[in-house]
């Protein structure tokens, strides 16, 4: 367990959270065949809120956030993103995906395109942005994740940490209102985790709505408004980071925390 705490210890958690709802999940259920992966999940995310989802492997946390941009289909319940209800209607799905950025565990950059092309592809084809403007925006975000000099390289020439920062920049180029992070540091060497977490802290400071599935408890303490603990497909406990870590209520949460904070 690499528990690297981000350097800038600014109290991000104190940032303002609006009253508007960004994502509302009501009574959502999902099955893989006979297996009940997500059981009656309710979760409301306000605009500007930063939520960390944690839990043992197989608890359904990745599946939960993958349902939000319809990479996985839920079978019952409601998911409403920015006022649009997610149904099997492809148009609505595309509309939501335009508005929700996602960062994956294995980066999933497009290896046949340069870093810059990776970033400009979706703005040009999905948002029909002129190429010149897309390039400008991409360079701006690449500067923000501190790798503008790599713009014309291919993903394979970059380190894991750099690739993940490109993946973050690529999502930001679509100007999303919500960012989903699916274990963004789990596939990284310990030396590279910090640079990615720093980027995510920077992003949090801009007031982006974020849902992060991660085991980086230092990040959760510093950035999250709320920590959600899942086990066996359901939300077991959800609380602000301070009470969540110091005074967990549920037995399962206590056990989990004692396991991962042991080292």
């Amino acid at each position: 367990m690499a528990n690297v705490a981000p350097t800038s210890e600014a109290p991000v958690g104190a940032m303002s959270v609006s009253n508007e709802t960004a994502i509302q999940i009501v009574g959502m259920n999902k099955w893989y065949g006979e297996f009940h992966v997500l059981k009656n999940v309710d979760l409301t995310v306000k605009k500007g809120e930063r939520i960390v989802v944690c839990g043992p492997s197989g608890s359904g946390k990745s599946t939960l956030i993958r349902c939000i941009n319809a990479l996985e289909k839920h079978q019952s319940g409601k998911i409403i993103v920015d006022g649009i209800e997610l149904t099997s209607d492809l148009k609505k799905i595309d509309e939501i995906r335009k508005d929700v950025g996602m960062v994956f565990q294995h980066f999933n950059l497009f290896p046949h395109l340069t870093i810059l092309e990776n970033c400009t592809l979706a703005p040009i084809w999905v948002k029909k942005m002129p190429k010149k403007k897309a390039n400008e925006i991409a360079m701006e975000y690449l500067s923000r994740v501190k790798i503008p000099e790599q713009a014309n390289k291919y993903p394979g020439q970059l380190s894991g940490g750099q690739q993940q920062r490109v993946a973050i920049a690529r999502s930001l180029c679509m100007n999303p209102s919500v960012m989903l992070f699916d274990e963004p540091t789990s596939a990284l060497d310990p030396e590279m985790i910090k640079e990615v977490l720093d980027t995510m802290v920077d992003l949090a400071q801009t007031g982006m709505t974020m849902i992060c599935v991660t085991h980086e408890m230092g990040f959760a303490r510093q950035v999250a408004n709320r920590v959600v603990f899942m086990d066996q497909g359901q939300i077991v406990e959800s609380n602000a980071p301070e009470p969540f870590f110091l005074n967990p209520q549920h037995e399962r949460t206590k056990l989990f925390l004692s396991q991962i904070l042991a080292h």
Partner: peptide, 18 residues
């Protein structure tokens, strides 16, 4: 092709043919 390539393309909002 790794499944992640399909997912990344989907997540960016590209339609099927794109």
């Amino acid at each position: 092709l790794p499944k992640g390539q399909y997912e990344a393309a989907d997540a960016l909002g590209l339609d099927y043919w794109q």
